[in-house]
Structure formats: structure tokens, C-alpha cells
Amino acid sequence: MKKRTFLAATLAATMATGAFADGHEPVKVGFIYVGPIGDGGWTYEHHQGLLAVEAEFGDKVETVYQENVPEGADAERALTQMALQGADIIFTTSFGYMDPTINVAQKFPDVKFEHATGYKRADNVSTYSARFYEGRAVQGHIAGRMTKTNKIGYIASFPIPEVIRGINSTYIHAKKANPDVEMNVIWVYTWFDPAKEADAAKALIDNGIDVVLQHTDSTAPQAAAAEAGVISFGQASDMAEYKPAPRVSSIIDNWGPYYIQRVRAVMDGSWESVDTWDGIGPGMVEIGEITDAVPADVKAEAEALRDSIAAGEYSPFTGPLNKQDGSAWLAEGEVADDGTLAGMGFYVEGITGEIPN
């Protein structure tokens, strides 16, 4: 196994080469990251997936990655350089890499691309995501049961369906657990900015919120929650350094098995363009340890909810549910279809505020 780190400041490094005894070159596997591998959240878990690929295949693969690649033109340049340097498959791990991935894939039809959380595919572009909203349901239940002020807060990144689904799922299940609960959402317009994330957490706490949830990538909200003595949940990664409190549980994105499967498909020639959207059941979304800071009865309820979702017995978006404006959305027992969830652009009834454009 050979690995080369692409630093954010340079795209000019050349990749080392290696070959098997039978003359075959190792499969070159690239990763483009929106944040640093040490963010403790989203990018950290994608990098754990890279390490899983190395552990599985050893010297049959050569891995490369670049951290801190902004979404947009910079991503297109980084992808182009990685393809030129001989990558066989490239994982592009942020929503805003969608158009750059498609654009570069058109120029390199022999390279396989895998785009996380997007929806545009091509003959050499697959898409993959996780049903994070399933984990938000579990977090919402715990939040609703544990809040003492009846106020919970949510730090949101960008107003895209993935994030809106999480907000809605959290609120639905917090409200089921506690009819008096209110939720305040702050949009920070970033995936990773510890200072902004900390400021958002402090603003929520100053407003009387005693449960902080996040769809951003750093551990800064955990630190703010620890300082204020309120509870929080790990996002994308376990954020275990904040156990047993303020972090009382977490959503863990388990990318390793998917990355291994897709790299193996390149190796054996079976790779094809597919769309993957897995959740708790298949193991792509994991619920981190629910600590003893959570009362035993609440923990048991949360685990039962997790298990019912995993078994396919319950969907977090099951009616009756109305949209924010009071119009009917799902009738009693009706389950939202994937198309609606994939394009979700509305709040459910009870959430105050507007979704930014």
C-alpha cells in the first residue's frame, strides 16, 4: 500500500507508483475532502473509510487525498489534477462537489467517480449518501425527553434537502416525546468553521436552550455545551471525547464498508453507476453509545426506536404530518416516499422561522 497526502496548498505533487509481482499496478483511489481530516466529524469519518480501504486491500491499492477543498472551481481543479495523476476511482465527499464531479467525469470517461450526498449521475459517476435523518429521529426523542426548558436548538449548515430532513426528523420526534418542546434553528452557511459553530451554540444557549444539536462538522458546539452545562450530540463522528456529557449520544457515518465494496468493484471489473442511500439497518448510519447521562427509561425508548427503524418497521416520516403552513402532507400511517425526502424543501408544522433561499 502506498499513500500520498495532497496538501490544501498544492496540487502539484506526483503520485508514487507501485506494482504487484505479476506486473499489475495497484488501484489508485482518491478522496477529496471539504474539511481537515482532524475535524472530529464529517471528514474524519470519510478518512476512516480511506483507512479501511488500506487495511482491506494492502498493497493492492494506492490511496491519495486532499483536505480543505472548497466547493466550486477549486474542487474542479483538484479533481482534474487527481485524475491526471492516474486515479482509477475518486470519492468526492461533499454536496457542493456535485457539478465539479460531473464536469470532470465528462473529461475522464475511464475514471470512476463517486459523489457523496448529491443526485447527478453519469455512466462513470455514482452517488451515495446515508439516511442521517434516521439517526436524527433517535436524537430528537432523547432531546425531547431530556430538555428541562422545553427549548432545543439546531445548528444548520446549508439549506439543502439533506439538512432540512434532519431538522424535520429531529423536531417530529422531539415533539412526540414532549408536546411542549420548541426548536430554534440557526443557519451558519458553512460545513466547518469552529468559530461560527461555537458562536451559534452560545447564541442558542443564551436563548434558554438546554439541548444543542448540529449539522456541522467540528466539535466546537460540544465544547460550548460542556462549558454551559447543557447536553449535545455527536455529529457524523462519535465525538467521544465529550462523553458521558455533554455528548450523550451521536450519529456515526460508517463509510468504510461502502468504500471497500466500490473499490473491489473496480478491481474485479463489476463497477457500474448506481445510487446508494442506506441507513441504520444496513449499518451506514450508526447510533453512538447512549451514555448514563441519559435516564435508563429514555435510553431504552431511544434504543427501541433505533431498532424499529433498523428493522424497517418504522419510518421517521410517518403520518399524520402537516407542512409548516398547516397544509396536509402525510395521512395517518402514510410514509413519505424517497423522491419527496430527496427533494425536501419545507419544514413540518410546528417549526418556526423560514428556510433561507
Results as ranks from 00 to 15, higher is better:
residue 3 K to A: 14
residue 3 K to G: 07
residue 4 R to W: 02
residue 9 A to V: 03
residue 13 A to V: 13
residue 17 T to E: 15
residue 23 G to T: 14
residue 23 G to I: 13
residue 23 G to Y: 06
residue 24 H to F: 09
residue 35 G to S: 15
residue 37 I to S: 13
residue 41 G to L: 02
residue 43 T to A: 11
residue 45 E to F: 00
residue 57 F to H: 14
residue 57 F to I: 11
residue 59 D to W: 07
residue 59 D to I: 08
residue 67 E to C: 05
residue 73 A to V: 15
residue 80 T to D: 15
residue 82 M to Y: 14
residue 86 G to E: 02
residue 91 F to M: 10
residue 93 T to Y: 02
residue 95 F to N: 14
residue 97 Y to T: 14
residue 99 D to R: 14
residue 102 I to R: 11
residue 105 A to Y: 05
residue 105 A to D: 08
residue 111 V to D: 11
residue 115 H to Q: 15
residue 118 G to S: 12
residue 122 A to P: 09
residue 122 A to G: 14
residue 129 S to C: 10
residue 130 A to F: 05
residue 131 R to H: 05
residue 136 R to V: 03
residue 140 G to I: 08
residue 148 K to Q: 06
residue 148 K to C: 01
residue 161 P to Q: 13
residue 166 G to M: 02
residue 172 I to W: 02
residue 175 K to A: 10
residue 176 K to M: 08
residue 177 A to G: 05
residue 178 N to W: 02
residue 186 I to D: 05
residue 187 W to K: 09
residue 191 W to L: 07
residue 192 F to Y: 12
residue 193 D to M: 07
residue 202 K to C: 02
residue 202 K to H: 01
residue 208 G to H: 09
residue 216 T to R: 06
residue 219 T to M: 07
residue 224 A to R: 04
residue 233 F to P: 04
residue 234 G to L: 03
residue 234 G to D: 08
residue 239 M to V: 00
residue 240 A to F: 02
residue 242 Y to T: 02
residue 266 V to C: 13
residue 269 G to N: 12
residue 271 W to D: 12
residue 272 E to T: 15
residue 274 V to Q: 14
residue 276 T to P: 01
residue 279 G to L: 01
residue 281 G to F: 00
residue 281 G to T: 04
residue 285 V to E: 09
residue 287 I to V: 08
residue 293 A to I: 01
residue 293 A to C: 01
residue 295 P to V: 06
residue 297 D to C: 06
residue 297 D to G: 09
residue 299 K to R: 13
residue 302 A to M: 13
residue 302 A to G: 14
residue 314 Y to T: 11
residue 332 E to V: 00
residue 333 G to Q: 09
residue 339 G to D: 15
residue 339 G to T: 15
residue 340 T to V: 13
residue 340 T to P: 04
residue 347 Y to N: 02
residue 349 E to Y: 08
residue 350 G to S: 04
residue 351 I to F: 06
